[in-house]
Design a protein around this nucleic acid. Structure first.
Lengths: 340, 340
DNA sequence: CATAGAGATGATAACGTTTCCAATTGAAAG
DNA sequence: CTTTCAATTGGAAACGTTATCATCTCTATG
């Protein structure tokens, strides 16, 4: 790519206004200490010449850029968007700029983002559920605050904020048990994903506590999409039609499964109870409406942002972990009699 | 916020490797012209010392930062995400970094983003359907390529890529007419939004061409959300229950309306035909599935990215406009007999 | 009227690279 | 063993700010 036409610099502004560079810089950064008439004159020249200080040079000079990166694997996901909103709202309050990176679950992308961060124009970073790629957190954490959301890794200087999947799954499981379900299938999500793994493990723990064992034919992994949920449900049915309830690792998966169930003539919840995960807005508008778990996404985002700032002040503070309880939203996709 | 601990610089690397700064710089930027053994030695030192060049200083030195910004009003929107994906894929091919900004339809946010851009660490910018805020495009366009997606404004050096709403609405309207509908209501979306305005205008044009006039009681604006669609539909019904078809300005609005229709015991499409806009993934999974318009979002994103790069090469090229046809997806929410 | 002390302003050295251009080295050709 | 020219390498000037002193200009006070 070619070079930009060169912009107005502080030098020309200074010359035009008949003051020194320093004075212009002061008008820019600390107007209070410049005499009113001088300040006005300089400001007039600035806006007249349309001068905008070069943030590169500024960053080089001041060694601070007040910018934080947030990395998400997939922006097309309302719960991640909520986390991001929360974090951004806090950063904005503190006058910190936010850059949002979307890795699309692509390892190559993640590597590039990583390099971008490493090139230290960034003051800190929040990673939201990366797809388990092998990012060298300790290394980044050596030069800037790193905060993880929805990832369970623990490293010396890395704070982390997690939904309590185990508690959520327990709530879901107990609810289904109360409804009389004994054969429960699961579509945890994408196998390589931490979230899917955590949720499956939690489910297995619950079964085990009841003296049951999760048989393989009751679990089907799939990509995080409605299409994925639909096809996973199909495979599950083809293989073992005897389950009466289905726990899905996300609302999207549940919606996909519900779509196919409807086509197959299954009644929900009478023939099959279905639950989601995340409380996406669509779930409440389905018919039947979707039983799910509500995540405190916005709050997690806020807390993560605050953690970034705390760590920026003191890079060596001990790592902070928080686990957030999930709230069961019972709706019609799982309540009422079933013939199981 | 405090200062960062200072990182390894190129100077120390040079000293450690026993070469000059220039050589290290060459190893970084143009390894081919450095003798193999020197290069290896320097590279060894670089990775050993964990040296990462400071992108600030780099940008200052080279006057190029190969970074483009994409600004979206709302990341929680699958069609915008598709546009972004398209643009990012093109930029990645060309080794251009992408920063994604989410304005949340908040004017204050937009202003901040604007200032960020203006501080020219950014090489170009793509605006996706901003909520009509008064951004001074010509000014930004003076210093970097600006490309608009889904905004109809026309400025001298600003390229723009638009879906052809008029053609899409026409397709929708004709389809509904064929199905025998004569009283059609509309929920265009958020009134202040360009998209909503364009779609409403197009609808009015179609009616007018048929010698009809759109009465005010058949139009209801609302925020871009399922909840918004639901409430708008309620207001529409309260006021005038006599329409047999409903055109919604987005799939989300349609889904919200459908939810309420279901609760009110309306059969779709027998009692009411509903159409969406954007072909969001959920629409295909509803029951009934949602008739909608498919947008070439990914392609629009790609084209916008390419436009940014073309304009970067030649800032003075004439502005480029493109309008993309929309493809009607007829599904069950609008087909079959109705009692209208 | 002199003068201390605050209030403004200016000069200049960083900041960490890239990029010229000059200097050196190395290898092939005579 | 020179010479020549290309291949490497080094030196130093940008790049556009901020930050640190030093200097200058007032104003109020004795």
């Amino acid at each position: 790519m070619a070079k930009q036409k060169k912009a107005v610099t502080i030098i020309e502004v200074a010359r035009q206004a008949g003051v020194s560079i320093s004075t212009v810089s002061r008008v820019l950064n600390n107007p209070g200490i410049v005499r009113a008439d001088t300040r006005d004159r300089v400001q007039a020249v600035i806006s007249e010449m349309n001068f905008i200080p070069d943030s590169m040079a500024r960053g080089l000079g001041s060694k601070s850029m007040r910018t934080v990166a947030i990395i998400v694997p997939n922006i097309v996901n309302s719960s991640m968007a909520e986390i991001v909103r929360g974090a951004m709202s806090v950063f904005r309050e503190h006058d910190v700029d936010t850059m949002l990176f979307n890795s699309e679950e692509d390892p190559d992308m993640e590597r590039r983002h990583y390099e971008y961060l490493a090139a230290n124009m960034i003051h800190g970073v929040i990673f939201i559920t990366s797809c388990g790629a092998d990012v060298d957190f300790p290394r980044i954490a050596g030069s800037m605050p790193v905060v993880l959301v929805d990832r369970e890794e623990r490293y010396p200087r890395v704070d982390s904020f997690l939904p309590n999947d185990a508690q959520g799954i327990a709530a879901l499981y107990n609810h289904l048990k109360e409804q009389g379900h004994t054969r429960i299938a699961m579509i945890p999500g994408k196998e390589s994903t931490r979230g899917a793994q955590r949720r499956l493990a939690a489910f297995q723990d619950m079964l085990r506590a009841d003296g049951l064992e999760l048989t393989e034919d009751l679990v089907e992994f799939c990509p995080w999409s409605m299409e994925g949920g639909r096809e996973a449900f199909r495979r599950l049915r083809d293989r073992n039609p005897r389950f009466t309830a289905l726990i899905c690792g996300s609302d999207g998966l549940a919606l996909g499964a519900m779509g196919l169930a409807y086509e197959l003539g299954l009644r929900i919840p009478e023939d099959l109870a279905i639950t989601g995960f995340d409380n996406a807005p669509e779930g409440a508008y389905m018919s039947p409406s979707l039983t799910t778990l509500d995540f405190p996404n916005f709050r997690m985002g806020c807390d993560a942002a605050r953690a970034v700032m705390r760590r920026y002040e003191d890079m060596n503070r001990p790592a902070e972990y928080a686990s957030y309880p999930l709230h069961l939203k019972v709706r019609s996709s799982s309540t009422g009699s079933h013939r199981g």
